[in-house]
Amino acid sequence: MKISEDVVRHVARLARLAVCDEEVHGLASQLSDILEYAEQLQQVDLTGVAPTSHPFPLKNVLRTDVPRPGLPREVLLANAPDDDGEQIRVPAVLEG
């Protein structure tokens, strides 16, 4: 699977990564290598094989609906790059 530079740019946007032309070029070839290698999975007949998303099939790990203290607001905001003392501030979210 050859990955074109356009696809690299599209995927980078999906992942919120800004990539310069030089990086796009390098990534296109590296991603192509890796995905070409991964192509070997296409050669195996996997019909009817259930996917494994957990190594062990645990079920129903649940907690009871009882409140517990969380973090004081100042602790949350201490790590925030920008805040107004109560809320976290970010550049305007553009919405109609």
């Binding site: 919120r16 790590n79 925030a80 790059p81 920008d82 550049p91 553009l94």
Partner: peptide, 19 residues
């Protein structure tokens, strides 16, 4: 993503900031 913790590089728009 530069919102709640860690490093943020400011940008003109939210998308800029993220990227």
């Amino acid at each position: 993503d530069g919102v709640r913790y860690g490093r943020r590089v400011e940008g003109e728009t939210l998308l800029d900031m993220y990227e």
